[in-house]
């Protein structure tokens, strides 16, 4: 009985090995040990059966196919819900400032930085006469944003389990 208890994951607080067993991520040797233990331990057997029901349900679940324009619709929705209105962008810092939500120190720093930028921009190349290509500027900015998004997506891809590589 003691020997059984010593090996029992539920008794010795090692339930994650049972979790790994149910997730089929254990080595064959460990699987054999757990299966041998399950024949003798009703508590673990019941726990594992419950877990396996969950896994079976997850295996049986199939994602709904997504439409061809899924990406476009999703990104458009993100953009529409998260883009604050011009009014909000104008009023939010003022609202926070007036409500005392911002302390003096960050306000002073931000103000000084903004003034510095305004001055720097106003004195940059004062003799330039040709118009600045607004569209080109925007495109360059957007390319950087897209590059950043791709970089982050790549990072998140790398964090996925290697088994997902089969779906590219």
């Amino acid at each position: 009985m003691n020997a059984k208890n010593n090996q029992c994951p539920m008794q010795n607080g090692n339930a994650e090995i049972l979790l790994s067993y149910c997730a089929r991520s254990l080595e064959a040797e460990q699987v054999a040990q757990i299966e041998q233990h399950l024949t003798a331990c009703a508590e673990c057997r019941a726990w594992a059966a419950e877990q396996q029901t969950v896994w079976a349900a997850m295996d049986a679940w199939e994602a709904e196919p997504v439409s061809a324009d899924f990406d476009a619709a999703l990104f458009a929705r993100i953009a529409s819900t998260e883009q604050p209105s011009v009014w909000q962008r104008w009023t939010e810092p003022v609202r926070q400032f007036l409500q005392g939500g911002l302390g003096w120190r960050p306000v002073l720093s931000a103000g000084a930085l903004a003034l510095t930028l305004v001055v720097a921009l106003s004195i940059e190349n004062p003799f330039r006469t040709e118009p600045v290509g607004q569209t080109v500027k925007l495109e360059a900015q957007e390319i950087e944003q897209a590059e950043r998004a791709l970089e982050d997506l790549e990072m998140l891809r790398q964090l996925e389990p290697p088994e997902e590589e089969t779906s590219l």
Partner: peptide, 13 residues
């Protein structure tokens, strides 16, 4: 720059 712009820029590209 609101971060949603990243997603929009990627979609545009």
């Amino acid at each position: 720059q609101p971060p949603a712009q990243q997603a929009r820029a990627l979609e545009k590209l």
